[in-house]
Nucleic acid binder design. Structure first.
Length: 713
RNA sequence: GGGCGGUUAGCUCAGUUGGUAGAGCGUUCCCUUGACGUGGGAAAGGCCGUGGAUUCGAAUUCCUCACCGCCCACCA
């Protein structure tokens, strides 16, 4: 701890993060220490040291980073830096997500503004355009991740459309097909008219709406519906087998009745899916456009007919209403039924749940379509067993319940998307035949599947891809990873799929700990949204106050799983803290210019006591870090540095430093330097830039980022 | 309809295993102290949502209710 060349001039002005951060990041990156292989080569860690791996949730390469990114980068960087300083082969694997449907939607909006449309475009051209757009954004995104101080290994970065990722994703699909886990089927799917693609359950949003509920006379029955426009093909009338009110009607019984476009013959179906309490206890079904009806129809092997086409217009079965869209047709159909005396009553205060496309809010139309599905039950069973065995822990632990709920109620997963931006599904069709294969099968007439995979199908395999499953050198060392740190909203979108694919392909869960952070809200705790105009750009804050300050503001007091309000005042407060640390250094450097660097033995009793108290802090903070309580560790460090180290120890040192007794002076000089240096180490995971910068002014031969974490003993 | 979370200082939030409460910002007063005014010192401000239970003792455990928020949901 030689300090012979006196105080550095740089400390004469306040800390300036802007001048520092870019320079420091460059030093780190050029050192190569983000890569554990380099750490091994340079003797920082041993080949045999334990690994600690985090797979970064790959940010979408279709825009700027938002506050949520800043939070996750901070949390993961804290974990990685802490482990790296504790002698682990710490590996943080960065990536970029092509984000299939999401990016396609962003791009479609962009070309819409230019007066173009993706429909009618050559798919290859569209793909190339989106690719260029994404690769441009990818660079921007990577730069922003650097700005936030992420010590991730860029040499191992992957893009979700890299050739090896595409190949392996397709291999997995083919394997699942051969194992009977992926199947082709005509099933009810969620159809978005605007985007002309099917969507999975997680890509739809259910909202409660007030609708008009119509009751119609249907032969001897009264039936109810909110969707009269689907009722043209209804020729089955369903009631509960135990409903005494309708005991006189037999299953299979035919009844002639007058309906929208004339007389029809309806068949009575008894099925316990009908709720006797609801409405009249009788309903007609439209299997092509309703999930429930579809299932009833399947059980009884009933006919199904499409009423509404893929653009939302009525098909010829609608007679005089053919070609009309749903909105226009509905009131006209009701009017006609009224004229025919079939409308019995109207309830306009009815509340029902409407499913919408989560991107464009278009009402989802259930349709029957040939798609690829993943059979979920065998997979979710493995996931539950894994959690039962304690192989996966959740932070906070109440998310285990949510995870289990999801796994216990699986719905077969539609993985086909009718969009170009994604990984192509390796399948071929010839009439009713189909084959899962990358190559065209033998024989003539085979047509390639034009659909792409749901993004979650490939990103679900991300921990495997990032560790180069199955035969890359990293795989045995860094798979399974350790912590999956992601937003709590991904507990059912992404986390279960990673678990499932990990277990399915390797028999091992891809991580042992799932750490979930909350949403970053605005200063009032309200959800950020473009329409509300309350979106905070994290990079503006780092510009203004420094990355370290933003990181502290995001961490202190932010418990896992809980949403955090991002207040500019708080960021400012931690900028002040950075400056405080800066000036502490300035004072200590100027007061120890004549210190020879040796530890006086023994130390002054009072200084010995200060160090003992400080050791307690080290212990506390280390325990908090080991238990993922970063919010507490950071606050304790803040409090100690400001209110103990600066306000008490340094204030009191001023007297001691004036002492004529050389031993007293040297003892406090040593103590001040010791506490300062160790504090820099402890603070480094939280405030990496300023701590590294100060460290570099203390004549250190090694970077702080690879300096050993202190032991309190 | 089901599930989860929250309810602590004016605001935004901490409080790890139960021992009568803390942070940041804000407010009031004082200090041109030679590290820092992006500072220092001091202060005001909380029956820790309601009602009950366990305990020597509960913000902290259990139950009830109320309110707020989020998520899920195939009652046509």
């Amino acid at each position: 701890m030689k300090n012979s060349n006196g105080m550095n001039e740089i400390f004469l002005s306040p800390y300036n993060p802007k001048d520092t951060e870019e320079r420091i990041y460059k030093v780190w990156e050029e050192s190569g220490f983000f890569n554990p292989d380099v750490c091994i080569k340079k003797g920082i860690v041993n080949e045999t040291s334990p690994a600690f791996t985090i797979v970064m949730p790959p940010p979408n390469a279709n825009g700027n980073l938002h506050a949520g990114h800043a939070l996750f980068i901070t949390v993961e960087d804290i974990m990685i830096r802490f482990k790296r300083m504790n002698g682990f082969k710490a590996l943080w694997l960065p990536g970029a997500d092509h984000a299939g449907f999401e990016t396609q939607v962003v791009y479609e909006k962009k070309i819409e503004k230019e007066g173009r449309s993706r429909f009618g475009m050559n798919p290859d051209d569209l793909y190339k355009e989106i690719l260029n757009f994404t690769l441009e954004n990818k660079k921007n995104m990577e730069m922003q991740v650097r700005q936030l101080g992420a010590s991730c290994d860029w040499s191992r970065e992957k893009f979700t459309l890299d050739q090896d990722v595409v190949d392996k994703t397709q291999d997995t699909f083919i394997k699942m097909f051969n194992d009977g886990l992926a199947y082709r089927g005509k099933r009810a799917i969620n159809w978005c008219y605007k985007h002309q693609t099917s969507l999975s359950e997680v890509e739809t949003e259910s909202t409660e709406e007030s609708s008009t509920f119509y009751y119609f006379k249907y032969g001897p029955f009264e039936i109810g519906t909110v969707r009269p426009e689907t009722k043209f093909g209804d020729k089955y009338v369903v009631m509960h087998p135990d409903d005494k009110r309708y005991a006189e009607y037999q299953h299979g019984q035919k009844i002639k009745l007058e309906w929208i476009n004339g007389p029809i013959e309806a068949t009575v179906i008894k099925d316990s899916a009908v709720d006797m309490e609801f409405g009249t206890g009788v309903m007609t079904i439209t299997p092509w456009h309703s999930q429930v009806d579809f299932e009833i129809a399947q059980r009884h092997n009933l006919d199904m007919e499409q009423i509404i086409d893929w653009r939302g217009k009525l098909l010829p079965i609608a007679g005089e209403f053919t070609g009309m869209n749903i909105k226009d047709a509905r009131p006209k159909i009701v009017e006609k039924l009224k004229e025919k005396g079939l409308l019995t009553r109207v309830d306009d205060k009815y509340k029902n749940v409407v499913k919408k496309c989560y991107k464009c809010n278009t009402v989802i139309e259930p349709q029957i379509k040939d798609q690829w599905f993943v059979k979920m039950t065998p997979l979710t069973k493995m996931a539950i067993e894994s959690v039962d065995k304690g192989e996966i822990k959740f932070i906070p632990d109440n998310y285990e319940k949510i995870f289990r709920y999801w796994m216990n109620n699986p719905i077969d997963w539609n993985i086909s998307r009718q969009i170009v931006w994604g990984i192509s599904i390796p399948a071929w069709f010839r009439g009713e035949e189909y084959v899962a294969s990358k190559e065209k099968p033998e024989g003539d007439g085979w047509v390639k599947d034009t659909d792409t995979f749901d993004t979650w199908f490939s990103s679900g395999q991300w921990p495997l891809m990032m560790t180069n499953y199955p035969d890359g050198a990293d795989f045995p060392v860094y798979y399974p990873s350790d912590v999956m740190e992601t937003g709590h909203d991904l507990i059912f979108k992404w986390v279960p799929r990673m678990v499932i694919f990990g277990l399915y392909l390797t028999g091992r869960a891809p991580f042992h700990t799932v750490y979930l952070h909350g949403l970053v809200n605005d200063a009032q705790g309200k959800k950020m949204s473009k329409s509300k105009g309350n979106v905070v750009n994290p990079l503006e804050l780092t510009d203004k106050y420094g990355t370290d300050a933003l990181r502290m503001a995001l961490i202190v007091g932010n418990t896992p799983g809980t949403d955090v309000a991002l207040q500019e005042n708080k960021v400012k407060a931690y900028k002040n803290f950075a400056n405080k640390l800066w000036n502490i250094t300035r004072f200590i450097l100027s007061s120890t210019e004549d210190f020879n660097g040796d530890k006086p033995s023994p130390l002054n009793d009072s200084d010995e006591k200060l160090i003992a108290e400080f050791n307690e802090l080290i212990k506390d903070v280390t325990v908090d870090m080991d238990n993922y309580r970063f919010y507490l560790a950071a606050e304790k460090l803040y409090h100690y540095v400001w209110h103990t180290f600066a306000d008490k120890i340094i204030e009191e040192s001023k007297e001691k430093l004036k002492s004529q007794n050389k031993e007293v002076v040297q003892s406090i000089q040593y103590t001040l330097i010791h506490i300062l240096e160790t504090t820099l180490i402890l603070l480094h995971p939280f405030m990496p830039f300023i701590t590294e910068e100060i460290w570099s002014k203390l004549n250190k031969d090694k970077l702080l980022m690879v300096t050993k974490w202190p032991s309190a003993i």
